[in-house]
Structure formats: structure tokens, C-alpha cells
């Protein structure tokens, strides 16, 4: 049943959606750009928003794969691998952090390729389960390969972002969180633009067609597996970069932390709550839910405040499967999971 009308529809949908997107995007952008001034450079608030932005990049990267209808529970594997790759390259090989972060992205892409080879034949629920199991492999290897990774105790004293000298400008990431904040903001904006571009490109259209009806998509000449693999590689690359940024931002990592289920859950939760099939929904969800958690729930319930993430996920699955942003747009009748993704193995 697939024909050009589906492609046209989604193109049409995108252009209609653009207006609302632009207004909210501009408001959010203004708020984020002025935030350091608005909060009088309050370190704590800026730190929370830096993390929120980093988690937003995770959600955006997750959604590159998510738009094809696949649910990955294994992105912690990429996050952890990116964090470890960059940390070890900078700590033991002595490379500059500006070099190790992209390198970490490429190493993670390699891991994504392995995961892709294993998981790409699977669909729906079985894909999700396979990705969930996949995390264990890099985690246990990192835990045990003491010679390379320094084992399960983790790495401390990682180098932060080195200072930048642009002419007379001198940006010091050590002394002020504001500089780190703007760095992560720039990264997330670049990623947002890229994801928007990908969604509108042929790749994005192909992924949406695969999501709607994989057999039909193949019938019109879309090589579903290649496109899904490509989306997984892109998703892995940016998740790895985010992981690397996390390592240099927090400057302490250990296997249990960076390969924890937390970093698999977070991007999925933000993407589903914000709207899996939208560009900015996942990022907005990150910027709302994470500060909510940190400013309100964390002080109230120090142990166990993360139940919030589970609660919003349950709420979203049961009552708002298109996500709050997807619901506000309401121009395409798309449920959380379409029929094709149920087709099993």
C-alpha cells in the first residue's frame, strides 16, 4: 500500500509542523542562551542545565534510530564505550581532549556496527531484548580488562575540556561552568539541526516508511536493513560523543555508572515522553524532566527520586503514546508503535 503519497504526506506534515516548531524553538533558544545571565551564574543551576542539555543530545541521538520504529534499550553500551574510549585516549595515550572526543565517536560507531550485525535481523520486541542484553558485553569486558581499562574501580581525575585561545579570547573550562554550559549548548544545537536535517532527508523519509510498513517500503526499493543499520551507526556515533563529553564534564567514570541501565533508560524515556517521531520533542522533554527531577524531586526524596522517570514513562505509554510534543502537533495519526514493528522476528 505504500506509494509516494506516504512520502508526500510526511513531507507535508513536516512543513506544517514547522511553524509551531520555530516558535517554541526560538523561545527555548532564547531562554537557553540567556540562562547564565538569568541565574546570575549560579553554578548549581547551570550545572543541572548543562547535564540536561547533555541528556537532550542523548535523546536526540537515540531518536535517529527511534524514528525507524525500533526501540533500543542498549544505548548505555554506546554511552559507556564513548566515555571510556575518550577517557583512556586522553588519560593513557595523552591525546588532546578535542581529538579524543571525535575518536570516541568513531570507536563507538564500530561497536554500533557489531550491535547492528547482531540485532538488525530482529524486529520489535526481540530487537529491544537483544539490545538490552548487548550492554552486558562491553560492560563486563571493561570490568575485567584491567590492563586497558583499569578495571571496575573506574577512572578518576580525567582531564576536563582544555582552555581555548581564540585570538585575544581565552575560554577557560576549568574555572567556570558557564563555558562548559555554552559548549554543550552548541553541541546540542548542532545535533538538533543535524537530526532535523536527517529527518527531512531521504534517509529520514526511508526510515519513516520502514516504520510504517517495512514490506511495502522494501517493495518500492528501500533497502530496509541498510537504512536501519545506517541509522544505528549515526545514533551510536552521537551517543558516543555525548558519552565522551560526559566523561570530561564529570571527570570520573566507572563501568557500573556509564554502562548503567540509567543511560539506556533516559534517552528512551525522553524520546517517548517528548514524541518519538518529532525532531525537538525528545530534547524538550530532557530540558523539562531532568531539571524537574533535580530541583524538586531530588531535594524531597534523596533516595529513590528517579522513580519520576519510571512514572512519566508509564504515563506516556498508557495515555500519551505519541508524546506531548507529538500530541500538540496532532497532524499525523501515528500511534506509539505501528503494526509493522509488531511483526516479530
Amino acid at each position: 500500500m505504500i506509494n509516494s503519497s506516504l512520502i508526500k504526506n510526511s513531507r507535508y506534515g513536516l512543513s506544517k509542523r514547522l511553524k509551531l516548531d520555530k516558535v517554541v524553538l526560538l523561545m527555548a533558544l532564547f531562554f537557553l542562551l540567556l540562562l547564565p545571565v538569568l541565574v546570575w551564574h549560579n553554578d548549581y543551576i547551570l550545572q543541572v542545565f548543562t547535564h540536561a542539555l547533555l541528556l537532550a543530545t542523548l535523546a536526540l541521538a537515540w531518536n535517529i534510530l527511534g524514528v525507524s520504529g525500533s526501540i533500543s534499550l542498549g544505548h548505555a553500551a554506546f554511552f559507556g564505550a564513548g566515555a571510556y574510549a575518550s577517557a583512556l585516549l586522553s588519560l593513557d595515550a595523552g591525546l588532546s581532549v578535542w581529538l579524543t572526543i571525535p575518536l570516541a565517536g568513531f570507536i563507538t560507531t564500530g561497536l554500533g556496527f557489531i550491535m547492528g550485525l547482531i540485532c538488525m535481523r530482529l524486529r520489535g520486541a526481540y530487537f529491544a531484548l537483544a539490545t538490552l542484553a548487548f550492554i552486558e558485553i562491553p560492560r563486563v569486558v571493561t570490568d575485567n580488562w584491567d590492563g586497558l581499562t583499569h578495571g571496575s574501580l573506574g577512572l578518576v581525575g580525567l582531564p576536563g575540556f582544555p582552555s581555548l585561545h581564540l585570538g585575544s579570547w581565552h575560554i577557560d573550562f576549568y574555572s567556570s561552568i558557564t563555558a562548559s554550559y555554552y559548549l554543550i549548548l552548541i553541541y546540542s544545537l548542532v545535533l538538533l539541526g543535524l537530526v532535523g536535517f536527517i529527518f527531512r532527508s531521504n534517509l529520514g523519509l526511508a526510515l519513516q516508511a520502514i516504520r510504517e510498513e517495512e514490506v511495502a517500503a522494501e517493495a518500492v526499493g528501500i533497502r530496509a536493513n541498510s537504512f536501519r543499520l545506517l541509522s544505528m551507526l549515526l545514533s551510536a556515533f552521537f551517543t558516543g560523543i555525548s558519552g565522551a563529553c560526559y566523561a570530561h564534564l564529570v571527570r570520573y567514570i566507572n563501568p557500573g555508572l556509564v554502562y548503567g541501565l540509567h543511560f539506556s533508560a533516559i534517552p528512551m524515556i525522553f524520546a517517548i515522553c517528548g514524541g518519538r517521531f518529532t525532531v525537538i520533542g525528545p530534547a524538550l522533554a530532557a530540558l523539562i524532566i531532568y531539571p524537574l527531577d533535580q530541583f524538586i524531586f531530588h531535594p524531597l526524596i534523596p533516595a529513590g527520586h528517579e522513580f519520576l522517570y519510571g512514572a512519566v514513562l508509564i504515563f506516556a505509554v498508557l495515555f500519551m503514546p505519541a508524546g506531548f510534543w507529538g500530541r500538540m502537533q496532532r497532524n499525523t495519526e501515528v500511534g506509539l508503535f505501528t503494526k509493522s514493528s509488531s511483526s516479530g522476528i
Binding site: I71, G310, L336, F337, S342
Partner: peptide
């Protein structure tokens, strides 16, 4: 529907809630 995939996502949320309740 599809129950299998939706139940994975739902129960993942439930797992987080139970885990944090136990932590509390």
C-alpha cells in the same frame, strides 16, 4: 497492540519505579 513491544516499554518504567521504591 503490539503487546510485546508496548509491554517491554511499560514494564521498563515499572522496573524503574519499583527499583527506586526499594531504594527508598
Amino acid at each position: 497492540e503490539p503487546l510485546e513491544l508496548n509491554s517491554i516499554v511499560l514494564s521498563f518504567g515499572v522496573a524503574i519505579v519499583i527499583q527506586n521504591s526499594m531504594l527508598f
